[in-house]
Write a protein that binds this DNA or RNA. Structure first.
Lengths: 139, 139
DNA sequence: ATAATTTTTGCAAAGTTTCGCAAATGCAAA
DNA sequence: TTTGCATTTGCGAAACTTTGCAAAAATTAT
């Protein structure tokens, strides 16, 4: 990963970016490739991988590993957000950036490090499953 | 990933765990396999993968993606720590858990979500590279 | 102990991701 | 425009990771 402020959108990259912008979902590389095959039949899967990497590096999209086997990509909206994934029931909760911003700010202040990670995925237990686990412990 | 408090250490799992406990480094699955081959010649690489998954799920070791191609594993010490990776110079900085704990605590308080992620890897710019980038912007 | 059940492992195959390289494309200079 | 240079892409192969399945090992019940 490198810092390259200059953005050059080729046909492939533009297609990938537009697909993500017009889709509200998390898409895996294979899904992106699948959906673009109609428009661009010759588009190679490895080009999809490279385009996704490029778009992430240039901060036009985000990538996250939700533990689904493949990383998933989505457009980068004005208000970034993050995810909490329950290890027990697999529920995925959205986490607003306001909850994360103070943490990133403290890293800037105390460690002199500017976070660029724009899509955090944290694993743990949702409220419901924590109760279940506690009950199980008692029995 | 599932929550299985009962820990069953087979020969393979014990070997993997002991290797990580006696080694101070981040090891990839292939490196773990390589180093155990002497002791356990018949140990299969897929068993190493499954053992690592098992040990992570049972919170005996941690896994992190440092952007090196393969995930890396290490023993879980009493004092967990995290990493900051510079996107520009690739330097890896250690981040003490004390810097992270208040953030996790706030998620517990406000979102009722108990974080179990025990090894965060955050990407961004180290102090040195941020200066460079700023200078480059000016020129 | 022995048998039945469950878990783990090796192996091979499938799936996913990366990489090298040559052809194609795009941009810039002449 | 044409030429030359740099970037991007397709393709094939390699590398990495996961999965299904049957054999082996461990656990539990009889």
């Amino acid at each position: 990963m490198q810092i390259k402020p200059e953005i050059h959108l080729t046909t492939a990259r533009k297609a990938v970016l537009e697909l993500l912008e017009h889709s509200d979902a998390h898409l895996s590389p294979a899904e992106v490739h699948q959906r673009l095959k109609e428009r661009l039949p010759s588009l190679n899967l490895s080009t999809v991988y490279r385009s996704l990497d490029y778009l992430v590096a240039h901060e036009l999209i985000t990538v996250a590993d939700m533990g689904t086997g493949s990383p998933v990509y989505e457009r980068l909206s004005e208000t970034p957000h993050h995810h909490l994934v329950c290890l027990n029931c697999s529920e995925i909760l959205k986490l607003e950036h306001e909850m994360v911003a103070p943490f990133f700010e403290s890293l800037k202040q105390h460690k002199n490090f500017t976070i660029q990670t724009n899509h955090l995925v944290l694993y743990g237990l949702c409220s419901h499953c924590r109760e279940d686990t506690q009950n199980k412990d008692k029995s």
